[in-house]
Design a protein around this nucleic acid. Structure first.
Lengths: 342, 342
DNA sequence: GTGAAAGCGCTAACAA
DNA sequence: TTGTTAGCGCTTTCAC
């Protein structure tokens, strides 16, 4: 049963399709009686015009950009989207979002869906699997749909990107911990397939190495990216350990840190007295915790704004313009969850 | 400068549009040499097919449903969307989201945008202004685009809706506080224009009245819906007050409660020793706080699933089927932020 | 292998 | 006031 078309409505109402069209578009040239009959036909057939056809296939349509995030649950993305919306609005674009929920297949589908909706461009926070499959991005390229990434891809896939220097940021954060006296620092790492996670780990290792320290195998905990992951990993890592434990833990992100904070609390370990904890991102809740979180702030709003700006700029440039990279600054935000060791 | 069309590509490549189409669609009937020429033309012109036209205007397209939330920042919505996605996926639908950020104008635009993308239906968490303007919903109705609400509208606008009984839930929560001995209970209310906020306030008042208590004017604080609102309102309400203060505060939602928790902490007031605090929603973070939050759980995942289910069902029914209301259950989750008074 | 032409659902002249 | 018709950008026969 295919969809009801304007022709059927016209037939039912005993008028021409032109008249039906006029009614749909609220033209005042239609006689009231006719209009009623047409409306009745529309109602009884439950006719719904195909917007793609109405938009005339011949006039500029509403401009929109797509946005693909990795997880609905992390407020990190919410801030970026809001930033993108603010900039998009100025240029007359709407932002429509989809989430891959960390699944590569979903990401591919989301790209297809967005493309099929004729968005003018897409901002993507890519969820990469282990294999460097970038076919969906190559596909976008081939279709001449501009896109901007918010996180690098394996194998130096050449694409425009707005990001921070995660390695340097993590390095700075770790240096700070070393400088205030920490020697044994653990890391609650992010998802293995996340570029940011890898970059941050690299930065930590470098900072440690510079001070003649190492990240012990037992102190590298593969936590994940969600609240629950931080909690679970925290309980596992710290339960039943004596004084033989790290004096500080760097977490992949704030969510992990919040989970860890809770785990430590339940285990009777105090923060920062017994353990210092750092996060990453500076999501809003970080400063409202009972123990406000020391964290590396990601310029989320700015990331959103800049990525939208860049995307829109590129929509207006020849696609041959080489990919552009915009690197934003992070800020170390010191709060109460870390302390100087005696 | 209008967009490049298939005709221009054909001209540039010296072939017919049929051939260009065949190349775009990867048909194997095209000679290699021709294909190369066409691809070169596509590249040099940066041709991007209009998907709306490709989708043939003549074949079923990807099925999608739109989702409009009020705030990107509240994890409450994230959980609902995830639920909706889970159900939508089963039925072969994709979910695309937009946020009104509490602005009525944005909501109207979002609806237009989604409709113009030919979504099959829309789930809306309506952001109502003071005036009961439902023209955008009437518009949807007129266009025979099915929709489901996640919150009531002023004036009993007849529409299918998935919601909880907020009045009863707030009533139950307040009763619990009264039963454990609280006599002076304050309320940090949500946005004035939120139906949920109003319903919850009603439930609180009823519970209070049943026990011969009242909500004093000074104890009704118009906080808002965000973290910052709870914090700010908390500082304002509790700074410099002596023992003359409420023994318990019910917050419109968990975000407000988290902000309040922080404010109380800064003011040196302990929770629950000095003040009991309750939230609403049971967002994930609620149980990971240093003082886990007593709250009324909203069945967010279920709300998402049921709303998607209902929407999809209605897409397949005559639109004349009367609106349906699905009321889900809430659960009181007692944690450490409330205590029994001696 | 390729081109010509019909047609997708609709809007917008233009006639009648 | 209404009907007819020519497109919109594309895909898909079906000849050549």
């Amino acid at each position: 049963m295919s969809r009801v078309t304007i022709r059927e409505v016209a037939a039912r109402a005993g008028v021409s399709i032109g008249t039906v069209s006029a009614v749909i578009n609220g033209k005042s040239t239609v006689k009231d009686a006719t209009r009623s009959r047409v409306k009745a036909a529309i109602d009884s057939l439950e006719y719904r015009p195909v917007e793609a056809a109405r938009r005339r296939l011949q006039t500029p349509r509403e401009k929109s950009i797509g946005f693909i995030i990795k997880e609905l649950h992390n407020p990190y993305y919410a801030d970026i989207i809001v930033g993108a919306q603010q900039t998009a609005e100025v240029h007359g674009f709407r932002v429509i979002c989809m989430s891959s929920e960390q699944r590569f297949e979903y990401e591919k589908e989301a790209i297809q869906t967005l493309a099929s909706k004729d968005v003018e461009g897409i901002i993507i926070n890519p969820a990469l699997g282990d294999d460097p499959d970038v076919s969906h991005l190559e596909d976008l390229r081939e279709r001449n749909i501009p896109f901007v990434l918010l996180e690098g891809m394996r194998g130096d896939f050449p694409a425009s990107i707005v990001d921070v220097d995660n390695e340097a940021a993590a390095h700075g954060l770790t240096r700070y911990l070393v400088e205030i006296g920490h020697r044994r620092i653990a890391h609650f790492a992010g998802p293995r397939v996340s570029m940011h996670a890898g970059e941050r780990l690299d930065g930590i290792r470098r900072a440690l190495a510079e001070s003649g320290l190492v990240l012990r195998a037992e102190d590298l905990v593969h936590a994940g990216a969600a609240l629950e992951d931080g909690y679970r990993a925290g309980i596992e890592r710290f339960a039943g350990r004596g004084p033989e434990r790290p004096t500080a833990v760097t977490c992949f992100n704030d969510l992990i840190a919040v989970g860890l904070l809770r785990a430590l609390h339940e285990l009777g370990l105090r923060v920062p007295e017994d353990v210092s904890v750092t996060g990453f991102d500076d999501i809003n809740v970080a400063r409202y915790l009972t123990v406000p979180l020391t964290t590396m702030r990601m310029p989320r709003n700015e990331m959103g704004r800049q990525s939208a700006e860049l995307l829109i700029r590129r929509m207006r440039q020849p696609i041959t313009v080489p990919p552009e990279r915009i690197t934003l600054e992070t800020d170390l935000v010191v709060r109460a969850s870390t302390r100087r060791l005696a």
